[in-house]
Amino acid sequence: MDKLKAKLKEWLEAGEITLAIGYKQGTREARPFFCRTAEDVEQMVFSNDFQPNLAVYLSKKEVVKDEKVAIVCTISALRSIAYLARENQIGQSQYKIIHLSPNDELMIFRSPWDIDAYIEEIPSTPSEEDRRVIEMLDAMTPSERWAWWAAQFSKCIKCYACRAACPMCYCTRCIVDNNRPQWIDPWASPLSNMEWQINRVMHLAGRCVGCGACGAACPEGIPVHLLNRKILDNIEENFGMPAGIAPREGAVLNTYKPEDKENFIK
C-alpha cells in the first residue's frame, strides 16, 4: 500500500496526473475516493475485494473529462478495463492503471492491452455462498426457479443501482430509458422488473467480467449478479471461454469466426 501511495503522490506532484480514483474507508465499508492532492492519497485504502468496481467512472465524462487520471484497480476493475478498451470506450485517454496484486506487488499497466496476460493468470470465481445458491437454483425445476426469481424481483424498486454500478452498462440511452417505443414498462411491477433484469443480463452476456458490483449495489439485497454468473458458466461450457478471461479477439458473443460450427450467420 505504501508503494502505491508513493507512486500516486509522485504522479500528482509531478503533474502527471490530476486525479487519482481509489478507495477510502467509508461508513462501514470502503467507498470510492477522488484524490487530487498528496494529502488525500494518505487516506487511501485498498483490497482486491472492494466494491464498487471503479472502472465504472471511466465512462462518466463529467468525472474524467479534462483530468489526467490514475485509477486504482481491483482485479475485477482490470478485467472491466480490458473489455472497455476492446469496446472502444477508453478512447485515446491515457489512464494510468495501477494495481496491488493479492501478494502485495505494485503493478502499473501502461495500456489496457497489457492487462490481458495478468488477468488470465487469475480465474474469476464466485464466492462459496454464490456457488451454493447457484447449485441450489440448478437443482430446481424451471417452474421452481422462475418462482424463486419472481419472489426476488417482487422486491425490485427499479432504482437501477445494478445498472449504475456496472462498468459495462455505459449506454448513453439504456433500453429502459427509451420511450419510442417503450420496450419495457418503466414502472415497478413483477413482470416489468423481470423484463428489465432479463434485458440487463442478456446485454451483458459475454461482456460481463463477473465482478458482482450489480448485486452488491442492490439496496434490496437481490442477488442479481447470480444471473450474470450463470451466463458466464454457460459461456465457458459452450464456448470454452473461462469467466473473466481477456477478450483478445473481442467478446465471445460479439464475434464471428469462419470456423464457427454454427452456420446460420453465413
Binding site: F33, V56, V63, K158, A165, P186, W187
Partner: peptide, 25 residues
C-alpha cells in the same frame, strides 16, 4: 457528488421523497 453513480436508490427508500411519473399502459 463526484462518486454518485446516478441511481434512484436514495429516493426510493426515502420516507419523504414524493416525486412521481405518470405512465400510460
Amino acid at each position: 457528488s463526484e462518486r454518485c453513480l446516478g441511481c434512484g436508490a436514495c429516493a426510493y427508500v426515502c420516507p419523504t421523497c414524493s416525486c412521481f411519473d405518470i405512465q400510460e399502459n
